[in-house]
Design a protein around this nucleic acid. Structure first.
Length: 649
DNA sequence: GACAAATGGAC
RNA sequence: UUUGUCCAUUUGUC
C-alpha cells in the first residue's frame, strides 16, 4: 500500500483515510512477519511418542470398524491403554520439568514465574451466570447476555443525567459556546508540534498489553521502522491541528471482570474494562504528559489528591489521617474527640459529566489545542461488550471517561480538583481518586458532630452540582476512641443525603484497616488471612520440587508474601512491639514453608540459611530510604511525618 | 546507576 | 478477553 507523502491532511476525511492506511500497513506487515498460528493454551504438550500412539490408535479404530474382527478390537483397546499410559507419563515429565525451574542454581525469572503462576491461580477464569436478568429481560445465550450488559451500561453507568439545577443549564450553555468557538478558530491555534523523538520515547515506554478493536499489538509498535514513526507523527500532528480523532480510536471493546465476592447474576457485579486501539492510546499518552506538565507548573491539582500522581502514594494520606487521630487521642492535657467519614461515589469514572468537564478545562485556561483534542476525545464515543469472543450491539457513552485510556485517571482528578474548596478549615481531607475522606475534631461530641456535618453538607452540595452521586449506604464513619466498649449517650451520628450514618468499629481505607482505637489488630488479621494461602503455596512448591534452590524460593517469598506484609508499614511502625512480633512470626512461617522445614525448626537456623533480616529492621530500612527520597524530592511535609515516625521508634 | 523483567498494593 | 494511572519492592543484565 502506498501513500503520497505530499498529500496534505486538511480534512477529517483525510485523517480517517490516513489512519486506515497506517493501520492496514501495520497489519499487513505483521501478517508477513509473524505467521498467525493460534497458540492454544494446553495443559501440556504431548510428546512425539504420544503423538505416534494417537495415530496408531486412530488407525486401529478405523481397521476395527471396517473389519469388525475380534483381533482388531483387541488391538484397538491395547493401543488405547498404551496411549493413556504415555500421556500420563508426559504429564509427569512436564510436571517435573516445570518444577525443575525452581531447582536451577541461576534463577530464570520467566520460567520460575510461569511455575508459580500456574499454582497461584490468582486469575480465575471468568464465569458468567447461565441466565442473567436485568430490566425484566432474561438472557441465556452469550449474544443475549452481551446485549443485556450493553443495556445495563448504556442506561445506568454511562448515561446522561438530567439537568436539575439552574447551574447545570448555565454550564451546558457555556460548554456549547466553547465547542462552537473551537470549530470557528480551527487552524489558527499554535502549539509545539509533536516530534519524531517524542513518539519514539513513548513507544519505548510501552508495556505489552492486550489489543483493542484494531488488533494491533504494542509489540508491533515496538518493532517500529523509521518510516512508520514518521507516518504516525504526521498523523498525530494532523489530529491535533484539526482537533479531530479518527472514529476507530473511539470505539472500545469492553470486557467484564467479576468483582471479588459479588453475585455473578447481576450486571453491576462486573467491572467494565475498555480495550482501545494501541495507536490511539499512544497519542493519549503524549497528550497526558503535556497536560501533566501544565498542571504541575501551574499547581492546579490539590495537594491532598494522592491518586494517579507521580511521586504520591496511598501511604501519604494514610499517615496524615493516622497522625491526626493519634494526636487527638493522646493529646497532653485536654483530649479531643475526632472522627473520620469515608464516602463512596457511585460509578465515579462513568459519571463524569462531559459538559462540566469541558467547562472546567476552559476555566483552567489550558492550551487551546489540548482542549480541542479533549472535546473530540469525549465526543461520540461508542463501545461494545465483548463476551466469550462475541460482540454486543454498539452503544454510545454519553458520560464518563473510558477506563483503559491513559488520560482517564488524569481527567477524573481534574474534574474533581475543586471538590474540597468549600470545606471549612476545621476539617481535613484526604483524596485518592474517588476515595474521599473527611476528618475533624472537637472538644465535645456536639461540636465534633456539627463540624463534621457542616463539611459533609458542603461536599454533598458540590457532588450535586457536578452530577456525582454519593452512596449513603456505603458511607462509613469512625469515631476514634481509646475505650474498646465505651458507649456514649450521644454517639456521633451524621447524615448523608438524609440517611443516618452510625459509627463503626473499623473500616478499610486505601487498603489498610483502621480501627477506632488505632491498634491495627484487624489489619493484621487481614494480612494473615491474605498470606495464608501463599504460605501454603510456598510449602507445596518446596515439596513438589524436592530440592529447590534456596535463593529462588527466597525470591518467591519476597515477591508474593513480603510485599503483602510490608504494605502500609509506616503506620505499623508507630504501633506496639506486639504487632511486629506477629509479623515476624508470619515471616518465619513463610520461610519455613519455602525451605520445606518442619514447624519446630529454630528461628536462628532459618535466619542463618536464609540470610533474611528481621522484618521490623527491614521496615525501618525502608523508612530511612523513604525519608531520603522525600528530602531529595523536596516533599518536606512527607519527610517530616516520616521523620516523626522514625524518632518515635 | 542505567536498562529490562517480575511480584505486591491503591483506585 | 486483565485496561489505565500511580506507588513500593525484588531479581536480572551491562
Amino acid at each position: 500500500m502506498l501513500w503520497n507523502n505530499d498529500r496534505p491532511l486538511d480534512s477529517t476525511l483525510d485523517i480517517e483515510e490516513y489512519t486506515t492506511f497506517i493501520t492496514n500497513s501495520i497489519i499487513e506487515a505483521t501478517q508477513e512477519d509473524i505467521p498467525r498460528t493460534k497458540q492454544t493454551a494446553r495443559e501440556y504438550i504431548p510428546s512425539e511418542v504420544s503423538k505416534s500412539l494417537i495415530k496408531q490408535k486412530h488407525q486401529a479404530y478405523q481397521r476395527w470398524k471396517k473389519t469388525g474382527a475380534d483381533i482388531d478390537k483387541r488391538q484397538y483397546y491395547n493401543s488405547k491403554i498404551l496411549l493413556s499410559n504415555s500421556l500420563r507419563n508426559d504429564k509427569r515429565n512436564n510436571f517435573s520439568k516445570l518444577m525443575s525451574s525452581l531447582c536451577h542454581k541461576k534463577m530464570y525469572s520467566d520460567k520460575v514465574w510461569l511455575t508459580v503462576r500456574k499454582f497461584h491461580n490468582k486469575r480465575i477464569k471468568q464465569m458468567y451466570a447461565n441466565v442473567m436478568n436485568y430490566n425484566n429481560k432474561t438472557a441465556s445465550s452469550d449474544k443475549e447476555k452481551a446485549d443485556l450488559f450493553a443495556d445495563y451500561f448504556e442506561n445506568e453507568v454511562y448515561s446522561q443525567t438530567a439537568d436539575t439545577l439552574p447551574f447545570h443549564d448555565q454550564v451546558t450553555d457555556q460548554a456549547s459556546n466553547i465547542r462552537n468557538r473551537r470549530t470557528a478558530s480551527l487552524n489558527t491555534a499554535k502549539w509545539k508540534l509533536i516530534k519524531v523523538e517524542e513518539v519514539k520515547y513513548h513507544i519505548k515506554q510501552l508495556r505489552n498489553s492486550s489489543t483493542g478493536p484494531d488488533n494491533i499489538h504494542n509489540r508491533c509498535l515496538k518493532n517500529y521502522s523509521k518510516l512508520l514513526i514518521q507516518h504516525i507523527t504526521k498523523l498525530y500532528n494532523a489530529i491535533l491541528k484539526l482537533g479531530y480523532i479518527p472514529a476507530m480510536w473511539k470505539k472500545a471493546n469492553i470486557i467484564l471482570l467479576l468483582k471479588p465476592k459479588k453475585d455473578k447474576k447481576h450486571p453491576s457485579s462486573y467491572r467494565p474494562i475498555s480495550l482501545l486501539s494501541c495507536i490511539g492510546k499512544l497519542l493519549e499518552k503524549i497528550i497526558k504528559q503535556r497536560l501533566m506538565l501544565q498542571l504541575k507548573r501551574r499547581n492546579i491539582l490539590p495537594q491532598h489528591q494522592a491518586g494517579f500522581r507521580p511521586g504520591k502514594s496511598t501511604i501519604y494520606n494514610i499517615i496524615r489521617l493516622e497522625r491526626y487521630a493519634d494526636g487527638q487521642l493522646k493529646r497532653p492535657g485536654l483530649r479531643r474527640h475526632s472522627a473520620v467519614i469515608l464516602f463512596d461515589i457511585k460509578a465515579a469514572f462513568g459519571s463524569v459529566w462531559h459538559d462540566g468537564l469541558i467547562y472546567k478545562l476552559n476555566d483552567l485556561r489550558l492550551p487551546r489545542y489540548i482542549i480541542s483534542y479533549l472535546i473530540s476525545f469525549l465526543n461520540d464515543r461508542t463501545a461494545a461488550i465483548e463476551l466469550e469472543n462475541i460482540l454486543s450491539r454498539p452503544f454510545n457513552l454519553k458520560s464518563g471517561t473510558p477506563q483503559g485510556s491513559p488520560l482517564s485517571p488524569l481527567l477524573y482528578i481534574m474534574y474533581t480538583a475543586d471538590s474540597m474548596n468549600g470545606i471549612p478549615t476545621h476539617t481535613e481531607h484526604g483524596l485518592f481518586a474517588d476515595d474521599t475522606a473527611l476528618w475533624t475534631s472537637g472538644h465535645t461530641l456536639t461540636s465534633l458532630k456539627s463540624r463534621l456535618q457542616q463539611s459533609i453538607n458542603e461536599f454533598e452540595s458540590w457532588c450535586k452540582s457536578w452530577k456525582l452521586k454519593l452512596q449513603p449506604t456505603k458511607t462509613e464513619l469512625i469515631h476514634f476512641s481509646l475505650h474498646p466498649r465505651k458507649k456514649y449517650k450521644n454517639p456521633v451520628i451524621v447524615k448523608v443525603e438524609n440517611t443516618t450514618i452510625k459509627p463503626l468499629d473499623s473500616t478499610r481505607y486505601l487498603g489498610v484497616i483502621i480501627d477506632k482505637r488505632l491498634k491495627w489488630r484487624t489489619h493484621l488479621d487481614h494480612i494473615e488471612a491474605k498470606i495464608a494461602p501463599r504460605i501454603g503455596l510456598l510449602r507445596y512448591l518446596s515439596i513438589a520440587a524436592q530440592e529447590p534452590n534456596n535463593k529462588t524460593m527466597i525470591n518467591i517469598y519476597k515477591s508474593i508474601v513480603r510485599t503483602v506484609i510490608i504494605y502500609g508499614y509506616p503506620i505499623l511502625l508507630t504501633a506496639d512491639q506486639k504487632i511486629w512480633d506477629r509479623l515476624q512470626i508470619m515471616q518465619n512461617k513463610a520461610l519455613r514453608a519455602a525451605f520445606g522445614l518442619p514447624i519446630y525448626t529454630s528461628v536462628k537456623y532459618i535466619h542463618n540459611i536464609s540470610n533474611i533480616s528481621k522484618i521490623k529492621g527491614y521496615a525501618i530500612g525502608l523508612l530511612k530510604r523513604a525519608i531520603q527520597k522525600a528530602s531529595t524530592d523536596n516533599d518536606s511535609t512527607l519527610r517530616n511525618r516520616l521523620q516523626g515516625i522514625l524518632n518515635k521508634i
